[in-house]
Design a protein around this nucleic acid. Structure first.
Lengths: 222, 222
DNA sequence: CGGCTACTTGACTAAGATCAAGACTGGTGG
DNA sequence: CCACCAGTCTTGATCTTAGTCAAGTAGCCG
């Protein structure tokens, strides 16, 4: 996608991180517990120290759209001012560094570099959401899954197998598919030789010497 | 949708608007011309004075995702800092008030109220995109169209018929449907008595005394 | 009046949701 | 240690939705 920045959220975060280093305290959340709930007062900011967080909106009828997963070193909740406009939950056991929002606000008033950092940060998030909208409306299931797996692997500098902490349903709510469709998309990519699956949660993107990737749209399930 | 703010973008914009009042000049764009192009330096900010602007990302293969339409009184381009991350085009003949970005940046350095305004603005955009992601992944075509038409009508205080300046293809690229599917969705809503169509571009949302709206999922084409 | 464009409708096809059943996994208790 | 259970993942069958191709219609402009 030539119109997209490959890494919309990779901005300098030294100011934010140094704030966390000075003013945060550790907090634990067990699997599937809620870090912050839509509509509640936004009184803190979080830096994930361990585990995975999912950020989502949940509809009246239970429909859920997960718009991002946060892992170690990633920040949650920096966009909101008074009340949370989304819900954040623990995918597995999560440890975060929690900082009172008031400290961030005080620092924002006097620190130009921090302001720029956060502005760039939020702009990146916006670009990412718009990229997701394009994916969701124009790409088919297997393409969306492959894209997600590539993105996810790219953030981990490991060259070996990548471990997915979240279940199929979480992935489905992220890329807009049912649990079953996610499973089928995995099989699809595996059969097509685009990914290797060691188990249902360990995968590796196959380097693409034969140009299989370009042929993806034509692959048919057996 | 209880987890959503009904009007995420309705924030106070007095500071931005007063800046435009003092420092902008008028610019005209003819139908389908480009206001700003993805990747170009972001050197100006725009306030729509007349006409409609579409903001979108365009993929290598021509896929286009329109994530918003801007009308009179709405601002374009305030989120980006150095380079545009999207493309803006004129849906019909457009007149904008254009302001050099440098003026905005200078004012941002000294004006706390302006900073808050823009922060709230961008946060609202982010919430809107996340709401769109949910719509796109969980709602069916006619639902999405109805939602768009309601949103669009809500911004116009007219109680009569609303005029759509954009074509079916534009609507389709906004709500994730083909031109034909948009047309079918219109017919669908009309048959179901949820909207009135005076012509293909003039519509009115029907007040819903019989609770037809709740029955929408069951409506079948004849 | 003719021709262009946008819109609508129909027929067919493909992608994915849903329903249902079977396979694998990890944890528990006999 | 093994049988059982619950939850997750996978696969199959069927149905709905929407994309595609194609034809026809309605406005609009020259």
């Amino acid at each position: 996608m030539p119109e997209m920045n490959p890494q919309p959220c990779k901005t300098d975060q030294s100011e934010v991180l140094s704030l966390f280093a000075r003013h945060s305290f550790e907090q634990h959340f067990q699997t599937n517990s809620t870090l912050l709930l839509h509509g509640e007062p936004a009184d803190a900011v979080y830096l994930v120290a361990s585990g995975t967080v999912r950020c989502c909106t949940i509809d009246a009828d239970g429909s859920r759209q997960i718009f991002s997963f946060q892992r170690k070193g990633e920040v949650v909740g920096i966009t909101d001012m008074d009340y949370w406009h989304f819900t954040a939950e623990a995918v597995d056991h999560v440890i975060v560094k929690s900082m009172p929002k008031s400290i961030l606000e005080q620092e924002l008033a006097v620190n130009v570099a921090l302001r720029h950092e956060i502005r760039a940060w939020v702009r990146g998030l916006l670009a990412e959401r718009e990229r997701q909208l394009l994916m969701l409306s124009k790409s088919k299931g297997p393409d969306r899954l492959l894209h997600f797996l590539q993105d996810y692997a790219a953030k981990r500098p490991t060259s070996g197998f990548v471990v997915l902490p979240m279940c199929r349903r979480d992935i489905g709510d992220h890329i807009g598919l049912s649990t079953e469709a996610v499973s089928r998309a995995f099989s699809h990519l595996k059969r097509a030789g685009l990914i290797e699956l060691k188990s249902c949660e360990k995968y590796r993107i196959v380097d693409d010497p034969k140009g299989n990737l370009a042929a993806l749209p034509n692959i048919k399930p057996v």
